[in-house]
Amino acid sequence: MEQQPILTVNKLNIDVSTPHGVTQVVRDVSFKIEAGKVFGFVGESGSGKTMTCMSLLNLLPGEAKVVKGSIKFRNKDILNCSAKDMRKARGSEIAMIMQNPMTAFNPVRTIGRHFIETLKTHLPITKQQARTMAIAYLEKADLPNPENLLKQYPFQLSGGMLQRVMIAITMSLNPSILIADEPTTALDATNQLQILQQLNWLRKEYDTGILLVSHDLGVIAQLADEVAVMYGGYIVEKAPVFKLFNRPMHPYTRVLLESRLGLTRRKIKSVQRVSVSSPNLINKENTCPFFERCEDADHTCVNDNLELKECEKDHLVRCVKSG
């Protein structure tokens, strides 16, 4: 039985204007997030993951702009709804966990102030009620001594604790979508695991749909139901997590997977090629974005309709050699 998706992104294109011209940072990105499901985003630094995340909240920085495509949350058109509606949806319906917990909080304000101001923005409650609520949710997020925690400043807490505070704030408003932009990148291994367990608990308990961003395939493998691999602003491969790990089809996905496993001599060479040069985001029209770094590249890769094609059920790849 097909579930109705909560969030639908369709053919999203984002441009960034820089002093050197316009850069295409997100291209033709489409995906869906369903309730209680985790959708994973992998890709190297600069592949456009954060840009995609911010556009879901309609919070792109001034230089960036959605030039094409649509984002639909339930029946709401995110890109065209009023500023007030959008503001109200942020935090309460679509929540976000920031990439770096150490800089996400205002250093001169206590945890309590952050928590309470968020609750009071979205709920018609008094400060005292908000405080009680905050304490309850900090406890749920496994944070010890929540009353004292409310009085503390961000710099007095560890990154892992701050990350959990963000999760607690998210939980308290029970959003239907949580965007977690590299929630574990800034943390050590123990904290990473705990955060992932908490996210997993969140989707089971509250049926929250999660967009999990990471450049670590291991993190994605633990939690995601479906994965999209991003390269140079494009989704180059999209599949349910088992299919992607068992049968990676795009050359870039294969390199990513191989670089995690044991490598043969030939493979090392290919990995080095990938990590040395950087993706050229100002794509020449009609050429595969991975062209310059691809082992299998040849003249057929200059192709007029290089699209995401379904090679097998639910397994989509953007490469002329597949399918």
């Binding site: 909240l57 503001r87 109200k88 942020r90 935090g91 976000m96 920031m98 205002n106 968020t118 979205h122």
Partner: peptide
């Protein structure tokens, strides 16, 4: 700063972000 981004992502009113943050 990311803390302003996070304040916006939590849905705070712009006036509050300026005056409090």
């Amino acid at each position: 700063e990311p803390f302003v981004m996070y304040a916006r992502a939590r849905g705070l009113r712009e006036r509050l972000i300026v005056s409090r943050h």
